[in-house]
């Protein structure tokens, strides 16, 4: 086992752990917005760590893996933001006790 192999293995394993936690969060969170937080974004770090691990195992893939990581960083937040906005506009129910400044402002100017 080479040094790169060990580091790569550790990185991929921790990436998988974050992906697992994201899945767990998806089950445990109470409403759509909180689920979106766990399900779409804890995966960002999980995927990035997995890619970094793969880059350690196969250094000749590193450039392409870096590009994949960049694409994820650029596209991931946009999709979750648009999902959240659509959910809010259609009045998706929120967990009890949520303070909602956006709904307050919407009511002020019809």
């Amino acid at each position: 086992m080479t040094i790169g192999g060990i580091i790569g293995g550790i990185l991929m394993l921790s990436g998988a752990a974050f992906l697992f936690l994201a899945g767990l969060g998806l089950v445990r969170m109470p409403d759509l917005f909180n689920r979106l937080q766990a399900g779409t974004k804890a995966t960002t770090l999980g995927t990035l760590l997995t890619l970094a691990g793969a880059a350690c195992l196969r250094p000749d893939w590193a450039v392409k893996l870096l590009l994949i990581g960049l694409f994820i960083l650029f596209t991931n937040p946009i999709s979750s933001q648009v999902l959240a906005r659509a959910a809010h506009r259609t009045g998706t129910p929120q967990a009890a006790g949520t303070v909602d400044r956006l709904a307050e402002d919407r009511e002020k100017r019809p």
Binding site: L21, L24, F33, N34, A38, A42, V99, D100, R101
Partner: peptide, 22 residues
């Protein structure tokens, strides 16, 4: 923040305080 959320998800009582802030 990933570690923060991981801790929240793993805590049995699920200590959430969700809000939409401006």
């Amino acid at each position: 923040s990933n570690l923060h959320i991981a801790r929240v998800v793993l805590t049995p009582s699920l200590p959430l305080n969700p809000a939409i802030v401006k």
